[in-house]
Every structure is written in C-alpha cells, then in structure tokens.
C-alpha cells in the first residue's frame, strides 16, 4: 500500500493557486488543501498535520514570512518541509524565509515540472 501525502498550498492569487493545484494533482498520492492567505493557512494547519507546505511570500493580511515563522514555532509543524514562492528580485525575502526555516524556494513564473520535482524531492518520493 502506498503512502498518502498531504500538502497545504497557501496563495492569495486564485490563478496561481489553480496553477499550483494543477501541477500538484500530477503527483501521485498527494492530497492538496488550499488556503487564501497566511491566516487561512494557519487555520488549516491548526490540529492538522501536513507533509509539506507551499506558500507565496507576498500575500495580504499575513504574508509568507510571518507564516513560516509561525509554522516553525509550532512543535507540531516544526519539521514540516516548506517551499516558498518568490518573485524575481525579492532576494532579501527569499533569504529571510530560508533563515526562518523554509527548506526551498521556487521563482515565478512557475513551471509545473519544476514544482513537481521540488515537491517530490522534499517528500523523498521516488520517480
């Protein structure tokens, strides 16, 4: 029996979210949950264990950096791999996110194969 993985996608842009969900739907045994922003993301993380978190940096209400910080301070999600999505030129944000505990980053415009490869790598999935 194959293991089922769970992934939380935190992205305020519906288009980007849809693109990410589309890409992730091609990863076998991966169940995706969507969140509109950081606050919604934290709400969905409360009491639920995820195998991976994919979050945008620039979001209203609560941005990705704050979300990474909050996630890392929660013992339940301390070890959960986090991928951040950044735009070109936001090197500082990227560095900050990695310092706060994010594991990897993807630069926009995103490419589905790139997202899939990174997710598989962090989930240690073969193929």
């Amino acid at each position: 029996m194959s293991t089922e993985y769970t992934c939380l996608v935190v992205e305020d842009s519906p288009m980007m979210r849809q693109l990410l969900v589309f890409a992730l739907s091609r990863v076998k045994n991966l169940k995706v949950t969507e969140a509109d922003d950081g606050v919604d993301g934290l709400r969905k993380l409360a009491g639920n264990k995820f195998d991976l978190i994919l979050t945008d940096i620039n979001m209203p209400i609560m941005d990705g950096l704050k979300l990474v910080k909050r996630v890392r301070s929660d013992p339940m999600h301390k070890e959960t791999p986090i991928i951040i999505i950044t735009t070109e030129g936001s090197t500082e944000d990227r560095q900050r996110a990695l310092q706060l505990g994010a594991n990897a980053y993807i630069t926009k415009p995103i490419q589905a194969p790139q997202v899939i490869a990174k997710v598989k790598e962090l989930l240690k999935m073969g193929g």
Partner: peptide, 10 residues
Amino acid sequence: ELLQQLVGAQ
C-alpha cells in the same frame, strides 16, 4: 496577473 505570473512580464 496572467502576464506577470505566466509570461514573466514585469
């Protein structure tokens, strides 16, 4: 958004 996120227009 399409132009920015998909095409990479700045």
